[in-house]
């Protein structure tokens, strides 16, 4: 572990490091600067740097419902992805046999169309005159005027649909490595299928679960396409607020401040989550 020994390792980090500095760190610093501009300025009059830390409480005071909603929707979508993704990943990894590759391609197939188009397709699926709503109204799961589109359900469903592959792929990777002989040992030691799943499969898949939840939750919390296309102003997420502040209201300091608020909130949650689940998971496989 001497300095000269690890030099090649640092060299390998260089390209990605430069990329990150150029396209992440520099803009982030710039954005942070923007968030501290004088809120009285405007695009036409120009902005002055006044270290206006007050932008943060102001933004938070105005938009805390959207922030909470974002985190809530993202959490709901993450849970839904986990519930849908775990059996799917398990089936692909353990039961699919020679259909495994076909099914994996099917999981990533939606990526072949654009995010926007996929979400627009959901608009059609959930629309008031669509098959689904008709069916649900017929079986009285929805009232005669009940809707799916423009509800929180639609937004969460859209998020779930769009981010499901991010959950399934890491889950699949960890389940695929699962040693079948451990499941046999578990059965030999009086564990039925449910106990084996809970005591052996799930703990051993923990790294995949942690990775999958992070890969789903983080982008979902910042998403605004689903809320825009499938929701209403009443279901707006923080991403929608940032979007309109930047592009419509042209309130750059506020938009920048909100971006950082979201980043900080997600970071806090992720750190708290990793300290609970992640440490346990990494410790388990070590």
């Amino acid at each position: 572990m001497t300095g000269s020994r690890s030099r090649p390792a640092y060299l390998l980090l260089l390209p990605a490091g430069l990329w990150l500095i150029l396209f992440f760190v520099v803009p982030a610093v710039q954005l942070f600067g923007t968030s501290l501009y004088d809120p009285a300025g405007s695009l036409t009059e120009g902005y002055r740097m006044t270290w206006a830390f007050g932008n943060y409480p102001a933004a938070l005071a105005a938009y805390w419902p959207q922030l909470l909603r974002s985190l809530g929707y993202a959490a709901a979508a993450t849970v839904a992805c986990l519930v849908l993704g775990l059996p799917l990943a398990y089936a692909i990894a353990v039961k699919a046999g020679r259909w495994r590759n076909v099914l994996l391609i099917a999981v990533v197939a939606p990526f072949f169309t654009s995010f926007l188009v996929r979400t627009l397709a959901w608009q059609t699926i959930l629309s008031d005159s669509g098959l689904l709503v008709g069916l649900l109204r017929d079986v009285h799961l929805l009232g005669p005027d009940g809707r799916l589109l423009a509800t929180p359900f639609a937004v969460v469903a859209g998020l779930t649909y769009n981010f499901l592959p991010f959950m399934v792929l890491p889950l699949y990777a960890s389940l695929e490595r699962l040693d079948g002989r451990l499941l046999e040992a578990s059965a030999d030691l009086y564990a039925g299928p449910a106990a084996t799943f809970r005591r052996v499969t799930l703990p051993l898949a923990a790294p995949g679960i942690v990775a999958g939840t992070l890969l789903t939750f983080i982008p979902a919390a910042g998403d605004y396409i689903n809320a825009r296309l499938l929701g209403t102003p009443g279901t707006a997420m923080i991403g929608n607020v940032v979007d309109s502040a930047f592009l419509i209201r042209l309130d750059y300091p506020q938009a920048a401040a909100l971006s950082f608020v979201l980043m900080a909130a997600v970071l806090l949650l992720v750190v708290a989550y990793l300290r609970r689940a992640g440490a346990a998971a990494l410790d388990r496989v070590a």
Binding site: R181, L182, E184, A191, V200, L204, A206
Partner: peptide
């Protein structure tokens, strides 16, 4: 899991977690 039989496996199959 319903048999009163236990195995010492050739590959041990200890639970790593």
């Amino acid at each position: 899991y319903r048999r009163p039989v236990n195995t010492v496996f050739q590959s041990y199959a200890l639970f790593p977690h």
